[in-house]
Simulated scan of single mutants.
Amino acid sequence: MAGFQTTPWRLISGILGVMCLVLMVTLRMLLNNVFTKPSIQLTPSPGPTLEPQKDSSCQKMWIGYQCNCYFISNEMKTWEESKDFCASKNSSLLQLQNKDELA
């Protein structure tokens, strides 16, 4: 009679043991995949620089970027004086519409 009562517990413990082994093998395989995958190396993309582009058709002292030429002045001028200066150089004053254009 004692052997009959322990049989369901042996069956349950056997099933739980097999499930535990399957879970451990699955976890080991997942961890192996995570640590053995080749890492992706990010390379910086060329962004805006303050150096004139080699193929730029900009005037001397102007900065070429994305088919545009920019002149950065250190002089303090009013908006109107700045617009007049740009007009004398056959250009227009840069006006950013939002913060996204600054980046």
Score class of each variant (00 low, 15 high):
M61W: 01
F4H: 07
G14F: 11
V18E: 05
A2Y: 07
E101H: 00
P52M: 03
S82I: 03
L23Q: 14
C69T: 05
E75V: 07
V22W: 06
C58N: 02
K83M: 14
L94A: 05
C67R: 02
S91D: 04
P46R: 00
T78I: 02
Y65A: 10
N33P: 01
I72M: 07
M29S: 05
Q53Y: 01
F35L: 05
R28W: 02
E80G: 06
N68Q: 15
C20L: 15
L50D: 04
S88W: 06
K54N: 11
Q53M: 08
W9Q: 12
L102A: 03
Q66A: 03
L96N: 02
L11C: 09
A2W: 05
I72T: 10
P8G: 07
S88C: 01
I12L: 15
Q97H: 15
K37G: 00
G17T: 13
G17M: 12
L96K: 06
L21Q: 01
D84A: 15
S82L: 11
S82R: 13
L23S: 13
A87F: 09
S39N: 05
T6I: 15
L11I: 15
M76T: 10
L31V: 00
F85S: 08
A103Y: 13
C67A: 04
A103H: 10
L93T: 09
A103I: 13
N90Y: 06
C86S: 03
L102H: 01
E81I: 03
L102G: 00
M24L: 10
W9H: 13
T78E: 07
S73P: 05
Q95S: 12
L21V: 03
I12F: 12
A103E: 06
F4G: 02
P48M: 08
T26I: 08
M1F: 11
Q97V: 15
M19I: 13
I63P: 02
C69A: 07
M1C: 06
Q53S: 05
P8Q: 08
A103M: 11
S88T: 12
L27G: 01
E80P: 02
I63F: 10
E101Q: 12
S13H: 06
C67W: 05
N68E: 14
F85T: 07
S57K: 14
V22A: 11
Q5Y: 14
P48Q: 09
F35S: 03
L102N: 00
L11S: 10
F71D: 08
P8L: 10
C20Q: 07
E80A: 14
I12Y: 13
T7L: 15
S73F: 04
K83T: 10
Q5G: 02
S91E: 04
M24E: 01
E75C: 00
L93V: 10
T78M: 02
G64S: 05
I63T: 11
Q95K: 12
P8R: 11
F85V: 08
D100N: 13
F4L: 09
V25H: 06
M1N: 06
W9L: 14
S82G: 05
S88N: 06
G47Q: 13
G47V: 09
I72N: 05
L93G: 02
I72W: 09
A87P: 04
S13Q: 07
C67Y: 09
K37F: 09
S45C: 08
V22M: 11
N68W: 12
K37H: 03
L30R: 01
Q97K: 15
C69W: 12
